[in-house]
């Protein structure tokens, strides 16, 4: 279902095996045009900001999230196609702190006690 809707937000899939794409524009719910090895589209089910990632298809809980053709972490719950993929549903395989950060601002929540 290729679309050349000029209003559609664009996203890049870097490697053919990637299950996420990176938004070049801010996306509203609706069609997102995926630029990459082959052209395809995905329907965003929620807003996804430029620079952020959108799931290209469903990913099972615990499965690797792939970008650049490499795992950038694992899904902490099942992901649906078109979902925003970020701190709330993707966790690093190394950094245990990242999943505790505020999903919108990235600000730490685990040192709140120090600001009193």
């Amino acid at each position: 279902m290729a679309s050349s809707d000029p209003a559609a937000a664009r996203a890049v899939r870097i490697h053919p095996s990637d299950n996420v794409a990176t938004l070049l524009d801010d996306a509203r719910p609706g069609i997102v045009q995926i630029l990459g090895a082959e052209r395809l589209n995905v329907t965003a089910v929620e807003p996804v900001a430029a620079g952020h990632k959108i799931a290209l298809h469903a990913v099972a809980k615990g499965d690797p999230v792939l970008k650049y053709g490499f795992p950038i972490g694992h899904a902490v719950r099942a992901l649906n196609a078109g979902e925003w993929v970020h701190l709330h549903n993707l966790a690093s395989n190394y950094d245990e702190r990242s999943s505790s950060l505020d999903v919108d601002t990235g600000a730490p929540t685990d040192t709140a006690h120090a600001y009193r």
């Binding site: 430029a50 950038i72 993929v85 970020h86 701190l87 690093s92 190394y94 950094d95």
Partner: peptide, 27 residues
């Protein structure tokens, strides 16, 4: 990094769409 529990990613990186240190590293 494991021993100091510091991975080289900051709040601004996360707000800018990067989610994990692996993702930032590849870029």
């Amino acid at each position: 990094c494991k021993s100091v529990r510091q991975w080289s990613a900051s709040p601004g990186n996360f707000a800018g769409g990067l989610t994990t240190i692996e993702e930032k590293s590849l870029g």
